[in-house]
């Protein structure tokens, strides 16, 4: 059995999950950085829940919420884009798990932008959305990118929630971690070794990249 299929699937799932987590995570981070009220605290708890919840439990909740018998699941079924036991389910599971990492890094980065810049931008007549894209994001992107890379690493290794939501269907939803599990079960140590090494190398690579990003972030502040 080839290991390229699980690898490509893993990269696709982790990539899409990261994009989803960054989009949702940025919105949550903006809201959290601005809402200093009970509503903010509730949102904070909800987005950070995947960090402390066992992945199987998280996967189970996703299954209940998006499953065939749920309103959301029925709707998606009718639209012809089923989620459960497809690669899309794997994306959803990985995004949910990666979300808190994006939110925390982005929130810290957004909060480190001088609020006076935002105030001045408002007096200059620019809308909140325009200010976000022209001031906040350009000044916070390093933190957001660091969060996105952490999210990608986490999504790449996702196992528990993915298994619950997407199952372990070879060539369909079998990502690299699931393939490693299968290989070990079969007693195919060579395949397990190779795939484990692959994941380890990519994890180390990401770590080095994040570290370098963090270095320039904490450096003397000069750009280019």
């Amino acid at each position: 059995m080839s290991m390229w299929e699980p690898l490509l699937l893993s990269l696709r799932v982790a990539g899409l999950a990261t994009i989803l987590a960054v989009v949702l995570g940025l919105m949550a981070a903006v809201a959290l950085a601005r809402w200093r009220n009970p509503l903010g605290s509730v949102l904070d708890a909800v987005v950070n829940l995947p960090l402390v919840l066992p992945p199987t439990v998280l996967g189970y909740y996703l299954l209940v919420a998006w499953g065939a018998r749920s309103p959301l699941g029925t709707l998606l079924d009718r639209l012809g884009i089923p989620l459960i036991f497809t690669w899309r389910g794997a994306v959803l599971a990985a995004a949910a798990v990666a979300l808190p990492l994006v939110v925390q890094a982005s929130k810290a980065a957004i909060e480190s932008v001088d609020p006076e810049l935002h105030d001045v931008a408002r007096t200059l007549g620019r809308s909140e959305t325009a200010i976000f894209f022209s001031v906040t994001l350009p000044l916070a992107w390093r933190g957001v990118l660091a969060g996105a890379m952490l999210a990608f690493a986490r999504a790449l290794g996702e196992f528990g929630a993915t298994l619950m939501v997407a199952g372990n269907i070879p060539a369909k939803t079998q990502t690299l971690p699931l393939a490693i599990y299968d290989a070990v079960q079969r007693g195919d140590q060579d395949a397990a070794n190779l795939m484990a090494l692959l994941l380890t190398v990519s994890a180390v690579l990401l770590l080095v990249l994040i570290k370098r990003l963090g270095h320039t972030l904490l450096g003397d502040g000069t750009r280019e």
Partner: peptide
Amino acid sequence: PPQSRRIGYVPQNYALFPH
């Protein structure tokens, strides 16, 4: 809102956009 007031504001540290 500040956007529709037409008031120029120069804060103490000038708050120029650094990027």
